[in-house]
Amino acid sequence: MYQVIKSKFNALKNNKIFELVVVAVIILSALEIGAKTFQLPESAISITYILDTFITVFFLVELTIRFIADDDKKQFFKKGWNIFDSLVVAISLIPIDDSEMALLARLVRVFRVLRMVSVVPELRVLINSLIKALPQLGYVVLLMFIIFYIYAAIGSFVFNSINPKLWGDIAISMLTLFRIMTFEDWTDIQYETMEVYPMSWIFYLTFIFFTAFAFLNMVIGIVVSVMEKEQALLYVSNEPSMTELQTEIKELKALVNQLVTNQNKL
């Protein structure tokens, strides 16, 4: 009996229509959370309360289906996305009204939108790629910090007398450099210093080249490289293994031999 239920739940979990229904409920949850940020009439508040109850129950049922359909239940709660989904569902069961944890429950309901990532495999590939790229990105960030620090020190020493609000000390100078890197009215800063130091444009252009161009391309290259590896692993994991292929070949041979035997008997 349990194996029948498990096989049915497994088929339901892998059903594309069921996946689309889960995605639709997550989108409905996002819309319901957004609606609560507006001033709503009493009738609309009642509807959002009913929707919230339905969404919480649906997520609980969906998580239960995935748990029963899983072959290795001991490893189910060791997977990061399953832990995240379980925490979101568990905390969503906390009553919002008249509770000391009401604020926590409301905040967790906002994170229900992130369940879209755990449902859609392509989104999981993106997030996993970003997480795996963090160690390599850390060295890029460290190098960028060094460049920021050097240019901030130079800017603070040279341009402090021109505009102390932008170049007063090294901390303020780094904020100014971040503004320059994001191209937020950076030409105004440049022309202000060029009135005193006409060649100061070299300072700005070299900084923009190192940060906005060189380092940005490094980050993109690292993320794309890791993403390609993740997609390759996903493709390999979705392909049937050699053992499965050999089993299918043996079954086909047995079926062919049986057909030949029956044909000879006739």
Rank of each mutant, 00 (worst) to 15 (best):
V260P: 02
P164L: 04
G34Y: 05
E239Q: 14
V260S: 07
L166K: 11
K73A: 02
A254H: 11
F77T: 07
I26C: 06
M194K: 07
A153H: 09
F213M: 11
L266A: 12
K36R: 11
Y151D: 04
T56M: 10
I94Y: 08
L233H: 05
T261L: 10
V140R: 02
Q136D: 00
L103W: 05
S156W: 01
E184W: 13
L87M: 13
P121E: 05
N262M: 07
I208K: 08
E32P: 00
K250M: 11
I45H: 07
L134A: 13
R179V: 00
S46L: 09
T37E: 12
L51C: 10
I50A: 13
T211Y: 03
L234I: 03
I208R: 10
D52P: 03
P121M: 02
N15H: 12
S156F: 02
Y235F: 09
I33M: 07
Y49V: 13
V25F: 09
A153E: 10
P198Y: 01
V140D: 02
M199W: 11
K74H: 12
I162L: 05
D188C: 00
T193Q: 07
E195H: 03
S43L: 12
L93D: 04
M181E: 13
A153I: 05
T193S: 09
S200Y: 02
A24M: 04
I249Q: 08
A30Y: 08
R106H: 09
E228K: 15
D97Y: 15
V117T: 08
D52T: 12
I170D: 08
K6C: 02
W201Q: 03
F148R: 05
L12F: 14
L20K: 12
V88C: 13
L104Y: 06
K78Y: 12
A214M: 14
R66K: 09
L20G: 00
L107H: 13
T176G: 07
R115Q: 15
D98V: 05
F183M: 11
T48W: 11
N163D: 15
A214P: 00
N264W: 09
I131K: 11
A171D: 06
D71V: 11
F67T: 07
M174Y: 00
V22P: 01
I127W: 03
V224K: 13
G138M: 10
I45E: 14
K265G: 01
F148A: 06
I83K: 14
F159S: 02
T206G: 02
I180W: 04
E251T: 13
I33Q: 10
L107I: 15
E251Y: 06
F67P: 05
